[in-house]
Structures are given as structure tokens and as C-alpha cells.
Nucleic acid binder design. Structure first.
Lengths: 344, 344
DNA sequence: TTGAAAGCGATACCAC
DNA sequence: GTGGTATCGCTTTCAA
């Protein structure tokens, strides 16, 4: 922070008032061509850049959005971060990033709010719902990304949220696996308290029931790579009555699970066991695995996030939730529907 | 940005002067216990939080570091981002994130500078060196992460930089592969103009020469997943005189290459071909591949970055470069040194 | 220790 | 269209 050249300096050099300089940098102000020319040239000569901090102070708009995230090792989130940052930039916003590491999460909020952010996007699974509420209480527009909060559902503490239709996605998986002739279908859960996991598991369970079957076995991976490795071992270590398919609560965990299946347990995917993920990570993540997955439409979700933020910032609508559809993309990690297993 | 409760409000409620309130929130100010107690209680009652924007305006310190990054699909960078953000937070700094998408890069600088950041970390490969120079010219402390700039080397336009010893790392790879008995060693290059790639390739080439051999074949992947896939096809598609080892310029590309080798070309790693990467991506990235790689010590690099930033911010040292050692971690993607290939 | 007052660098409203 | 002036919320002398 060394840029010591101010609008006053420019005004002096350009022989105009300081107000005139200011007008040249605020859109929709009336400045004569001549004045503007002199200001611009003076500004260039001095290397002047308007001070966004000072501007924020008076306009009461920082043009900064606080983004709270965790689990950047799950490739879904870097992807979201990248697209979100680009999308917000189009609206003239910048991203102040807060990465929270499980335990600590209260300090984050206080720090965010001090920076007078215009809005907050919470894309962190490990964040307590209370936090979102606190933000809302503090008057800051908040959008929950990929998670709903109980409070918002109850309309007690309104917070906007954007999610994909996790339940419907999970139902598709159930139908796909049953149609593929699978008999012993396991579920590898994410963080049990998270809304995504609750919705996915519920949809999966209910649709299986409709199809006359049920979850064969279940383990918890807590949305972490190591957790999913352990869970996969638990599910598949015993040879008898082994699952012949597993629906994993996230792509990130699905990749971990497949590693274990193939490398440690010598199982073939999908010959021995079909694997389905959820989320939509870039190909660089699943690579040769050709993972069948329920894709969340990231672009739509980002767009919805931008919309919800705008609505709250402009106070043009009250907080609400947007749910976008997701779709099942079948790749080589599951057996085709007309599978040998179907006609044993 | 709605927090309309100011220090004046608190002062009124606490029956003290506004200055007194301010002192309670600046470390090293003298306030009596009684005054502090009244202020704190009033602040809590009103939900007061000091306005960081206003503070920055007067102190001329925003406590914000601009971080410029690209290629978040390369897992090395999310990892860096996470650790960097946490490290800077310990110093009381926050991260304003700029993700630049190849083409556009000039606009970024201007936007960063307007926010009066206290410093800038450039971890983007696609950034022109000129940009770093511009920042330095503007008087902003800049640290180049994982890349050197020609200018800084020439001492013409000083910029701090932290890199690992890419050249030494590449030499280790050369020795490892030759010791493993490999005869036809290929190099899969990253972005050809980048300093990392230049250093890695030079070290590799020179060490091979010392060992009495040379690069058998070479292709360019430009540090992208797709580019590396194509490059791997080019290198290995012809069955005759195929390389029996390949040093890939980054882990991200190495994973892409291994995908192609195993899935498309039916080659076994490391039986048919050994693969070595470079960078240090989390296990979630390479998973079952057990990739041999040159690990850059991320924590050391982050620490160096924080140090270089401090030095420049406090003007306690002139810009300079820090190079940290890296180490070869041998895993299952390369044949052991006492390999059958050695005694055919 | 405390309060009054002077800015920090910009925007916004005002007459002209 | 243009220049003066109050103001944004805070830190910082400076007397008291």
C-alpha cells in the first residue's frame, strides 16, 4: 500500500477541481470531453489509481464478496472457486477468501464482517448452520452453496441457498444400479450431519424401497479421502456377501474407494463391483477411472448464487433457496444395463 | 455492507468519547479497565465491529494480500492456496483472490492495485513477467511463487521469488532413471516459456549428458491435462523404439500421461514404462498410481513467501529470491534400481 | 488516561 | 458541466 498519488494530485496537475477527477472515475457522471482528457492524461502521468478503500468507505459498498470454503482437496471446490470468482468479477465483485480448517470457524465470521463484504458465499461443509445465521443477523447477505441450513428450511433464520436436487440424483442412481442387475448395493456416506448427505441417502434409500430392495451395507467416509478409503475397506474386506455395487456420496470419495478396491483388494471395476459418485469433478480428478456419477450443474449453481447475492444486496427479493436439477452420467465404472449379471 | 453501528454509537452508549472506543480496538493503547469494560459491554450490546475499511484508509495498511493464480485444476495450486491462506492469516493478512484465465491478465493488476493490497503473490504460470514488473513499479511488494522472472534475475526489475531447486530435482530424476536401467528416456515438457520448465529440462538434459546418455524423445504438454494426454500419445503411439521411461514436467501432467498409457495404450506402469512427475500434489490426486515424483516442500515455500512479503512490507530487506531444496520420492510408478531390465 | 479535532481519499449534494 | 463542502468511520496527535 504505497500508492500515495491521490485525486488531489491529479486535480492539481490537470488544473481542475478534485470533484472533476472523481467524476471521471464514476460511471454515469457528466464530464466534458476536454476535462476528461486533461484528467486522464494527468492521471496517467502520475500513475493514479482511484483508492477502492476510500470509495468503499463513502459508498458503503466494498464490492467484495467473502467466500468461505474448506476441503480444497476435493476437486469440486477449486472448480467452484474458479468459476465463482470469474462470475462475480463480471458483476464487478472480488473474492476475499477464507479457508476454514474444521475446528476454527467462529473467528472467520468476525474477520469477514470487519471487511464490510457486500455478501458471503458459504461453500464449506464443516460450517455450523449457526454461523450462517449469525451472518444473516449481522445484516450480511449470505448464500449457502451446496448446502441447506435447517434454519432456512424452517424460515426461522432466512438464508439463501443453492443446491442441486440431491434427492432426485440419488434416486437416479438407485434405478440405474437396480436396472444393471445389482443385488447387493452399498452406500458410502459423506458427512452424516450434512444436508447433501442426508438428501442423497434419503433419496437413495427411498427409491431402492420403491424398487423392492434396500441398502445392503453402509459405511461412513465423512467426505474425506482417507475416510472413504477406510470405509471402502470396511465394506469390501470380507469376501462373503460382498456388495456388487456401491453408491459413494461424492466423487472425491468415489475415487478413493476405487483406489482401494483395485489396488488393495484386487477387485475389478465394474466387473466385480460397480461404483457411482456424485458432484462433478473435472476429468483430471477421475482420469482413467471413467467414473459414473451424478453431475451437479456447476455453471447453473454459480449463476444461481450470483442471482441470490444480487437479490439480497439490492434487496429486490427476500432470501430463498434455488434447487437445480442434476443428471446421471454413465461411464465405465458401472456395468451396462444389459449386463451378464442380469441373466445369470 | 449494512453494519451501520459505529464507534460513535458505542461511545454514546458507553458514555465515553469515540476515541476511547477506538483505543479499545487498537493494540498497545492505554485504556483503563473500567473504560474498557464499559466499551466492551456496549459494543456487545450493539453488535459493534470495527470497520476494517475505515481503518485501512487511515493506517494505509489494508492487511490484504492479493493472490493471483490460475490452473486450479492442477491440485498443487489449491494446496498452495489453502496453506498460503492459513499462513497469511497467522500474520493477520487476508487473501483477495484473482484467478486469471490465460488471455486476460492486464486487467487483473489494475484491479488488485485499486484495493490497496499490502502485497501480491503471483502463483500463476500464465502471467507475463511484465506484470510483476508493473506491480513492483507501482510500489507494491510482489512475490513470485514457483516462478522466477527474467527481470528479477537481471536485477533490472527487482521482484522477490520463491522456487524450489528445479534443476537439482530434475538431475535426481535423471540419475534415478538411469540407475533403474532405462535406455530410452523421454521428457514431457510443461509450458515451454516458464522458468520451472526451463530449469527442469535443463537439469535433466545436463545430468543425462553427464551420465553418458540423452533425452530419447520429447513432447510438450503445456502443463495442462489435455495437453499432456496428447503429448503422451505422441510419445508412445508408435510401438517401435518406444520410450521405457518418461519424466513429466508436473504431477498433474504425469497423471494424465499415465491415464493414456494404461487405458488407451494398454501399457503397464512401471513394467513397460516408468513415469516420474514433479510438484507434490496430494495423494487424492495420484491415488492408486503411486507416482514417483520430485516433491517440492510446500510448507517451506509458503514460509519463504511469507518471509519475503514481510521483508518488503516492512522494508527490512530488498527483494531477492529464495530457493528451497526438493526431494525425490520413489514410489511404484518407476522400476526399482535393481531391476530386471538392468541385467537383461 | 482521556476527549477534541484534524485528517485518510474518495463520493455526493449543492449552488453556480 | 463545474467547483466547493460535508461526510464516510476510523486512527492519531495534542492538550488537558
Amino acid at each position: 500500500m504505497k500508492n500515495t498519488v491521490t485525486s488531489v494530485d491529479v486535480a492539481r496537475l490537470a488544473q481542475v477541481s478534485q470533484s472533476a477527477v472523481s467524476r471521471c472515475y464514476t460511471s454515469g457522471a457528466s464530464v466534458s470531453d476536454e476535462t476528461r482528457a486533461r484528467v486522464v492524461s494527468a492521471a496517467k502521468k502520475l500513475g493514479y489509481r482511484p483508492n477502492a478503500i476510500a470509495r468503499s468507505l463513502i459508498t458503503k459498498k466494498s464490492r467484495i464478496i467473502g467466500v468461505v470454503m474448506s476441503q480444497l482437496d476435493n476437486q469440486f471446490y477449486p472448480l467452484v472457486l474458479e468459476k465463482l470468482s470469474q462470475r462475480l468479477r463480471k458483476d464487478g465483485y472480488h473474492v476475499l477468501l477464507f479457508i476454514n480448517d474444521r475446528d476454527e470457524s467462529d473467528g472467520v465470521l468476525a474477520e469477514i464482517l470487519q471487511y464490510q463484504v457486500d455478501g458471503i458465499v458459504m461453500a464449506s461443509t464443516v460450517l455450523s448452520s449457526a454461523l450462517a445465521r449469525d451472518c444473516a443477523d449481522a445484516g450480511s447477505p449470505v448464500v449457502l452453496f451446496n448446502r441447506m441450513s435447517r434454519q432456512s428450511a424452517n424460515e426461522l433464520h432466512p438464508a439463501s441457498a443453492v443446491t442441486s436436487d440431491n434427492e432426485a440424483g440419488a434416486r437416479m442412481v438407485a434405478r440405474h444400479l437396480v436396472a444393471g442387475g445389482h443385488q447387493r448395493i452399498a452406500y458410502l456416506a459423506g458427512l452424516e450431519a450434512s444436508s447433501t448427505n442426508l438428501d442423497r441417502e434419503r433419496g437413495f434409500r427411498e427409491e431402492l424401497a420403491l424398487l423392492g430392495t434396500r441398502i445392503h451395507s453402509r459405511a461412513v467416509g465423512n467426505y474425506s479421502f482417507e475416510g472413504a478409503q477406510r470405509a471402502a475397506r470396511d465394506l469390501f474386506v470380507k469376501k462373503q456377501d460382498r456388495p456388487d455395487a456401491v453408491f459413494v456420496g461424492s466423487d472425491h470419495m468415489a475415487i478413493a474407494a476405487m483406489d482401494v478396491l483395485r489396488t488393495e483388494l484386487g477387485l475389478k471395476v465394474p466387473e466385480d463391483v460397480s461404483v457411482v459418485g456424485f458432484d462433478n469433478v473435472p476429468q483430471a480428478a477421475w482420469g482413467a477411472y471413467q467414473l459414473t456419477t451424478v453431475e451437479q450443474p456447476v455453471d447453473l449453481m454459480i449463476e444461481a448464487t450470483a442471482t441470490l447475492l444480487r437479490e439480497q444486496i439490492d434487496r429486490t427479493a427476500t432470501p430463498h433457496a434455488i434447487t437445480v436439477p442434476c443428471r446421471l452420467v454413465v461411464r465405465a465404472s458401472t456395468r451396462p444395463v444389459t449386463s451378464p449379471a442380469r441373466t445369470p
